[in-house]
């Protein structure tokens, strides 16, 4: 198996798994009914993408594990999602700002992956990029509306942006696995995604009347698995509970 490819697929699938899980926590509790529908729909898309990425990861690994085994039976240190997506939802503003910052990255990444030299990766990305584009339209609209809306909503969105900003840099970091996959033509260079992302973010924040923090500091450790936040472990205690409590059951 290709260890670097396996690692790459986990990074893709864990981002969508963990973010999809967080978004699904909103079920029945959104500020308006249309948002309940939209959040469930976003979570559903992300879990659907997870099934595709982790199924391929399981095949590449060739160790007899399934996508569900990867999702439900790995511990924190084996997860490869960026730290930003495991952060708790906090309020609706924080949830939508996180979604926007991720969607802008996700669309750029998936657009690149749609031209991957690995046909399976290209195929999954081509499907997922349509969903990501739609998610981005929606999250950008919401960020703009709430940034521009009232004094209260503006302040809440600025706080969310300030909190999340240090978690955005990790999206563009590279390690040896990335370098190997870039050289093999499987993934675009992570750093190369930054300009397109930055353009989207700058334009949207201008319209939302929000100020980009003046800092390049980046928390990292999620996509290498070196050091997750404390939050991921708690998420896994819920997500994985049935599979771990009843290991001989099928569902």
């Amino acid at each position: 198996m290709s260890a670097a490819l396996f690692e790459t697929l986990l990074r893709l699938g864990d981002n969508t798994l963990v973010l999809g899980h967080r978004v699904s926590e909103w079920c029945g509790k959104a500020p308006v009914l249309e948002e309940d529908i939209a959040l469930a729909n976003t979570a559903l898309d992300l879990i659907g993408q997870t099934q595709m990425w982790l199924s391929y990861a399981a095949e590449v690994e060739g160790a007899g594990r399934s996508a569900d085994d990867l999702a439900m039976l790995r511990d924190v240190w084996d997860f490869r999602n960026i730290l930003m997506v495991e952060r708790p939802n906090l309020d609706f503003g924080h949830t939508m700002m996180r979604q926007f910052l991720f969607d802008a990255y996700h669309r750029a990444l998936l657009s690149g992956l749609a031209g991957s030299g690995d046909p399976r990766v290209a195929e999954i990305a081509a499907k997922a990029v349509k969903e990501a584009t739609y998610h981005l339209d929606r999250s950008a609209e919401t960020v703009i509306a709430l940034g521009d809306g009232t004094e209260v909503s503006h302040a809440k969105m600025q706080t969310a942006l300030d909190l999340l900003w240090p978690y955005t840099g990790e999206m563009f970091h590279s390690d040896e696995a990335d370098a190997e996959m870039v050289a093999a033509g499987v993934i675009p260079d992570p750093e190369g995604l930054r300009p397109a992302w930055m353009d989207t973010v700058t334009a949207t924040m201008a319209e939302a009347t929000l100020t980009l923090p003046d800092s390049n500091f980046a928390h990292k450790g999620g996509r290498t698995g070196k050091q997750h936040t404390e939050h991921l472990g708690h998420m896994l205690t819920q997500m994985q509970w049935l599979q771990r409590a009843y290991p001989d059951a099928t569902w």
Partner: peptide, 18 residues
């Protein structure tokens, strides 16, 4: 449901204002 409605007030206000 009440909590969802009340904690979402600022969101609805912001969207309407925009």
């Amino acid at each position: 449901r009440k909590d969802a409605w009340e904690s979402g007030q600022w969101v609805r206000d912001g969207m309407l204002a925009h």
